[in-house]
Amino acid sequence: MIALMNEARTALMQRRSSLRGLLRLNLTEAGGQGRGREPDLVDEAGGKSAETVRARLSEREERELKDIDDALVRIEQGRFGHCARCGGAIGRHRLRAIPEARHCMACSEQVGR
Rank of each mutant, 00 (worst) to 15 (best):
M1V: 05
M1H: 05
I2D: 10
A3K: 08
M5F: 01
E7C: 03
E7F: 07
E7T: 08
E7L: 09
A8P: 01
A8G: 11
A8Y: 02
R9L: 13
T10V: 15
T10C: 12
T10F: 09
L12T: 11
Q14K: 14
Q14I: 04
Q14A: 09
R15P: 00
R16I: 05
S17V: 12
S17Y: 11
S17M: 12
S18W: 10
S18K: 12
R20S: 10
R20C: 11
G21W: 08
L22V: 10
R24W: 07
R24N: 09
R24L: 02
L25Y: 05
N26S: 15
L27N: 11
L27W: 06
L27D: 11
T28K: 14
A30V: 07
A30G: 01
G31P: 06
G32W: 09
G32E: 05
G34M: 14
G36F: 05
G36I: 06
R37V: 14
P39I: 08
D40Y: 10
V42F: 12
E44Q: 14
E44I: 15
A45R: 14
G46Y: 07
K48R: 15
K48E: 15
A50P: 15
E51T: 05
E51K: 08
E51L: 14
T52Q: 12
T52I: 06
T52L: 12
V53A: 01
R56P: 02
L57T: 15
L57G: 09
L57M: 15
S58P: 04
E59R: 10
E61L: 07
E61C: 06
E62V: 05
E64W: 11
E64M: 08
E64P: 02
L65Q: 07
L65D: 06
K66R: 13
D67H: 07
D67T: 10
I68D: 13
I68T: 14
D70Y: 07
D70P: 01
A71D: 10
L72E: 05
L72C: 06
V73T: 08
R74K: 11
I75L: 05
I75Q: 07
E76F: 07
R79I: 00
R79L: 01
F80K: 00
H82C: 03
R85L: 13
R85Y: 08
G87M: 11
G88C: 04
A89R: 14
I90F: 02
G91I: 02
R92W: 09
R92A: 08
R92I: 12
H93A: 06
R94S: 00
R94N: 01
R94I: 03
L95G: 04
R96M: 12
R96F: 02
I98C: 01
P99H: 07
P99E: 11
C104A: 05
A106P: 13
A106L: 15
S108K: 15
E109K: 11
E109A: 10
G112Y: 00
G112F: 00
R113C: 01
R113T: 03
R113V: 03
R113K: 06
R113I: 02
R113L: 01
